[in-house]
Design a protein around this nucleic acid. Structure first.
Lengths: 341, 341
DNA sequence: CCTGTGCTTGACATCGCTGTCACACTCCGT
DNA sequence: ACGGAGTGTGACAGCGATGTCAAGCACAGG
């Protein structure tokens, strides 16, 4: 099966290849009738331009990179799904890359990878989005970047974010409204800077309600189930056991839930647990988790849109290179009124 | 930052571009000393050939496609992680694509996508791997394919699989050994043909032990949590409630677990539940799920290796185009002795 | 000394497309 | 009628690599 080329189409339409190219790319200066005629031939033959040749001669690119630290988290999967769907629509292709800061050569390896394959843009997810070396690399390579929930360097690149602080505050306020006065908090991966905002929001709500936040009740996790389990066990074994625990993501909240089960503490009767993200997991737990819905799919789609805009040089975007998406509180059965005892 | 080209390297090394190309590609007929000298320059400059140009002139390709039906399942994430890791090593790039059979144009869209971007190979995951139209398409486009757990058309393409039937039988035997005599089974997505083997294995074990399998105890699910929950509820409400339930994947098993919790049925004391896959989820449940570990990561890596082999025309592979990987029974706390009552 | 063979190297065309530029033509105002 | 601006079109070069082929060289055998 010989591939169809521009020349074939041109011959069939009785015009020069360049004219076909103009039609394909929607360039100006083609007579409307001619444009229509050529378009008809293109459709008839089902012609698709070879993306590699295109890229080579125009240094545009149709490949977008999605960079993850850990591509197997539920978070990553959601982002990917959103990005993928949008890519289809805008006819980009998505290249997934995994980067970790282990070892010496990670940056060099990234650079090599980028040099061998020019990307039209890249999406950096936390915690990568806050690594200055990586941002420098993309800047040097002149690859447009959109960051998801960046924690540092605001304004340095386009970004998609959510009001994590506000969301955490609202969720905490909801717990306080349920009568909880002693609330534990399990932080996420310290490298994930945006996640630190969740702690801020929690503290803000507690301070506003004049409730104390003891350091023993503010534990460090790393977003994994295991870390949530361990932190949960410690919190539940404490003398002044909190009546509610806020974990900075759903996986850790699930860990706390299991810790409570093991310890025979009824949820939500004797302990309320809330998470963050509204991952698919949240609904698979028993009781289902109260959490904050972070619109991951939409965030990824917005990121693709931003990249597309930058590629098209839509300076209509101008200064508006940051999209902020709304969150939603999702109160399910893992949280309830504080025990009266 | 101007990109480094073959010519630059050639000039620096005092040879022709073609010779550099030879060194890069490890072709024969270059004097060892020259080869070493050129290699040194390449390393020094950190030169990387432009993959697009390479692809254009040689019609080789360094892009591998990973095709999913649902890219957000835990299964998909595991496969992707394995593929990604192997790609890094072999310096391929991974393009992720999502295909569904909705609507009219899905095949045409796939074809268009493939025509615009020649892939060096593709990995098809279930249930896509059993869609004959898709297999035909790839054959027509002359893109090598490796299928993961194909259900139909054995031998048609290279494949990576696992003994699903044997695994299901062993797991069922383990339940029988625990004293269970009435065991429910929840099937997976009927489109996922390989998964039908799990039912076969289950039936084989039951038959071997002379235990009846009632049709009311063999329900249809679709691999989602929700379908597991619903099937679980039905099984648990039945008059002759089974003492153990085998769900064809972990997500559905989790659904059954929640159904049991809701109904106040203690697991594993009054009901044993087992899943299949050993997804990350399995360990996040309470009690943690007994299941069969399917080596997803290794399977994906093997698939990449197969594609690489095909690309290099290693006919050393010859007829050995199917890799079968081993499973492991993982018995955790969601299964236990049958209740004596 | 000549021819043949095998190794080593580079010149050149080519992959499919787009950027650049030149040319042709139409439509003005003067 | 003529210069100039604005349109429409195609010829041609080149993006950065590899395939092909021919040429140069060394060494063997006749």
């Amino acid at each position: 099966m010989k591939p169809l080329t521009l020349k074939d189409v041109a011959a069939r339409a009785g015009v020069s290849p360049k004219t076909v190219s103009r039609v394909i790319n929607g360039e100006a200066y083609v007579r409307p009738e001619l444009r229509a005629a050529v378009q008809r031939v293109v459709d008839e033959l089902g012609y698709r331009p070879n993306a590699f040749a295109r890229e080579l001669s125009s240094s545009r690119s149709f490949l977008l990179g999605l960079y993850f630290d850990d591509p197997s988290s539920a978070y990553a999967a959601d982002l990917q799904r959103g990005a993928l769907a949008r890519c289809r629509v805008l006819s980009y292709h998505l290249v997934v890359e995994q980067v970790s800061r282990d070892g010496e050569g990670w940056l060099a390896e990234c650079e090599a990878s980028l040099r061998s394959m020019r990307l039209g843009g890249a999406i950096l997810t936390p915690p990568l989005c806050d690594w200055p070396e990586l941002l420098d690399l993309f800047a040097r390579m002149d690859v447009p970047v959109v960051r998801i929930s960046p924690g540092d360097f605001p304004g340095r690149t386009a970004a998609v974010e959510m009001d994590e602080c506000g969301a955490a505050r609202e969720l905490t306020e909801a717990l306080i409204a349920l009568g909880h006065r002693t609330i534990g908090f399990i932080q996420g991966n310290p490298e994930h800077h945006a996640a630190a905002r969740r702690l801020e929001g929690f503290r803000a709500a507690m301070a506003a309600a004049d409730l104390p936040v003891s350091p023993q009740h503010t534990l460090q996790g790393d977003f994994t189930f295991r870390s949530g389990l361990e932190a949960g066990e410690r919190l539940l074994a404490a003398a002044d056991r909190p009546s509610a625990i806020f974990a900075a993501n759903d996986e850790m909240a699930l860990g706390v839930l299991v810790a409570a089960m093991r310890a025979g503490i009824a949820v939500p009767d004797r302990l309320s647990i809330v998470g963050f993200d509204d991952a698919a997991l949240a609904r698979m737990a028993w009781p289902p988790l109260s959490t904050v819905r972070q619109p991951h799919v939409e965030m990824a789609a917005a990121a693709i849109d931003l990249l597309d805009g930058i590629a098209r040089n839509d300076d209509a975007l101008g200064n508006d290179r940051t999209r902020r998406l709304p969150y939603t509180l999702v109160l399910r059965d893992s949280s309830g009124p504080a025990p009266t005892s």
